[in-house]
Design a protein around this nucleic acid. Structure first.
Length: 420
RNA sequence: GGAAGGGUGGCCGAGUGGCUAAAGGCAGCAGACUGUAAAUCUGCCGGACUCAGUCCUACGUAGGUUCGAAUCCUACCCCUUCCA
């Protein structure tokens, strides 16, 4: 599959996909381009409901849908309430843990909150649908006869999601084997219900998407399209969106605005341009200017990157607050609101509270033992003064600035200690 | 149903009676160098406790042998391969 030159595509949407680096693979690009040219194209992207929040790995396909809406299309966000009960075998050696219906519904409700900020759900706007609406009610024999007959086992065995499992001699249950059929069926059903003709997703979904396109042609004689974005790794090869604490979640109850902003602020130099194109909506000439900054100057670009993404995902107030906290903390060495805070009872403070226990309570380290190790290694500071005594205590006298003390682990992790 | 092999810390993977909280690698955290970057070098990397120590938890699960078990025995569960 050759990637067309940006100049050769006519539609705004595809041009953006190509120029900004979202485009990885597509089925029949010319026909898709033409279909987009007619305007009002309906496209969907599917989401697992295995967790109660999306993370940055979901952001890329979601941004594609956002651009689609900006370019006059209609996004459908498909929650996999039904398919989550099956488990997508793509890219894993082990069967996913199965969730209860209640857990899935609760997850979907939480995930929705992230979409509210990213999409216009007004009349004729984006739609959020749940494939449990049709999958739960499927009748086995009719489904097999209508849909199952279009799938040959021979072909199913050639798909990566299946083949890799088998090649690696890992078990694949019949339950999971059905996943690709159901996802293909989703596409046809969305076409029938909403006239949806395009499915987007990460490149790991290519096989599933192609199946849907094929099924649409066979079962309904419809021309459907697929478009995938690359799976992102950082320039040094790490998977995107993993931190020590786990995934980089989009919901703020899973990851604070401050930590979210910091994640992007610490982007590697080599990734700045790419990420600005993918995760912000700044104009390309502005991005070119930021990307060209050399040496320490590129830090300016990283701050803009962090603030822009945080604006999109967490809202403008959260973005500005995080940027301001960072400015005061890192550039003025001052104590700033917005850092994680531990509250200590006055009585406790009178006796003094050990620094190591506060590090643990603030969530800067996982255990007291780790906190003590870090102190021994000279990584801990209280109000910017190195702490050398493993059993050093914080007392009321240390709450110097505005009733708070600043506790730091390394150069990047800071927390405030306050009396409650 | 039969035979063989296997299940070890977040992951990979050594270990076949004490020297094992368990080699090595990856991932992670910190220090140095820098720019809140990368690369590199160094240290740390189950938990509790004012800690050169003591105790608790951990080698699929449950028992047993032994002064002592990840290591030996028994039963069970799960996985893989081959045979039927």
């Amino acid at each position: 599959m050759t990637t067309p030159l940006p100049s050769s595509v006519k539609s705004d949407f595809l041009r953006v996909m190509l120029e900004r680096g979202y485009y990885h693979q597509a089925t029949d690009v010319e026909a898709l381009d033409k279909a987009l040219g007619a305007g009002g194209l309906v496209a969907y992207n599917g989401y697992d409901a295995t967790a109660d929040s999306l993370h940055v790995g979901h952001l890329l396909p979601t941004m594609m849908q956002r651009w689609l809406q900006k370019c006059g299309g209609k996004p459908i966000l498909l929650m996999g309430g039904g398919t989550t009960k099956i488990g997508d075998p793509s890219g894993r050696d082990e069967t996913r843990q199965l969730l209860t219906n209640e857990a899935i519904d609760a997850n979907i409700a939480k995930i929705k909150t992230a979409f509210d900020r990213l999409f216009d759900f007004g009349p004729n706007g984006a739609l959020l649908v749940n494939n449990a609406d049709w999958l739960d009610r499927l009748e086995y024999i009719p489904f097999l006869r209508d849909v199952g007959r279009h799938f040959t086992i021979n072909r199913m065995l050639t798909f990566d999601s299946v083949r890799l499992r088998l090649d690696r001699e890992q078990p694949l249950t019949f339950l999971e084997f059905n996943y690709m059929i159901l996802q293909a069926y989703d596409f046809v059903e969305l076409n029938r219900r909403y006239g949806c003709v395009l499915q987007t997703g990460g490149s790991d979904q290519w096989g599933n998407i192609v199946n849907g396109v094929d099924l649409g042609r066979r079962i309904a004689n419809k021309d459907l399209f697929g478009l995938t974005c690359p799976l992102l790794t950082t320039a040094s090869g790490a998977k995107m969106g993993k931190t020590a604490a786990g995934a980089v979640w989009l919901n703020s109850d899973r990851l604070s605005d401050w930590d979210f902003w910091q994640y992007w602020r610490n982007t590697e130099d080599a990734d700045v341009g790419r990420f600005l194109k993918l995760f912000t909506e700044l104009p390309l000439d502005e991005i070119a200017r930021l990307e060209a900054l050399q040496g320490a100057e590129i830090n300016e670009a990283k701050k803009i990157l962090a603030t822009e993404i945080t604006k999109l995902v967490r809202g403008p107030e959260a973005a500005e607050a995080a940027a301001e906290t960072a400015r005061r903390t890192f550039e003025q060495g001052a104590l700033a609101e917005g850092l994680p805070t531990v509250e200590v009872a006055g009585a406790e403070l009178a006796d003094g509270v050990t620094v190591f226990s506060l590090l643990a309570r603030a969530g800067l380290v996982a255990s007291n033992a780790e906190a003590r190790r870090q102190i021994k290694q000279g990584a801990v500071k209280l109000n910017d003064q190195p702490v050398s005594d493993e059993f050093a205590k914080v007392t009321a006298a240390d709450l110097v600035s505005d009733g708070a003390a600043k506790l730091s682990l390394g150069k990047k992790k800071h927390a405030l200690v306050r009396a409650s």
